[in-house]
Design a binder for these strands. Structure first.
Lengths: 85, 85
DNA sequence: AGTATTTTACTGTTATGGCAGTAATACTGA
DNA sequence: TCAGTATTACTGCCATAACAGTAAAATACT
């Protein structure tokens, strides 16, 4: 089971690391992502209640990829392929 | 760049697939995840403005894993390791 | 077909996330 | 040290996510 606090804390640190390597300030990143500076600050701080769209917008700018996979994902994909033929 | 709509739509379908395979109704999943039934419905429908904590709670129940990785993730990890020694 | 269950959709309420503005603190470089 | 920049923290407002309740539509079951 995923610990939301840990997950977001880790993600926040990665965002900060990538942002700084890119030479961006929080405000610059916020503007590029189309969110408020407070949101970037909150994400880096590990806030757990940010909205997905805000987070994905920020992650997109700093080039962090998000992936999901469950035990039945492969089965699902194959099923979808079949449907599209 | 990630398309938020597509991402959430895909994730929603995976959630639904996993939930049904687990033999759970939306209401049951909602109760187990500690969120409202509307939230589960919204996630499966691909709503892009749900909050991370709600989403992670639901994903945890249906055993879907979320991972993130950026071009500098490895570098960051190594840096952290060094700090902890 | 008929019934029970589930899902979808809508509503009104409540709680809070997102936001800009601001100010104080911390950091960086000359 | 001093000045400029960035981050952190706080405030108040607004928009809306989360929620339960309800009802209709869709699905499943016998």
């Amino acid at each position: 089971m995923i610990n939301t606090n840990e997950f977001m804390a880790g993600l926040g640190k990665q965002v900060r690391f990538h942002r700084m390597k890119a030479g961006l300030t929080q405000v610059q990143l916020a503007n590029m992502a189309g969110v408020g500076k407070t949101t970037v600050f909150d994400i880096e701080k590990g806030k757990t209640s940010v909205q997905i769209d805000s987070l994905l917008a920020v992650l997109g700018i700093v080039n962090i990829d998000i992936q999901f996979s469950g035990p039945l994902s492969m089965e699902y994909e194959k099923l979808m392929e079949r449907e599209n033929n």
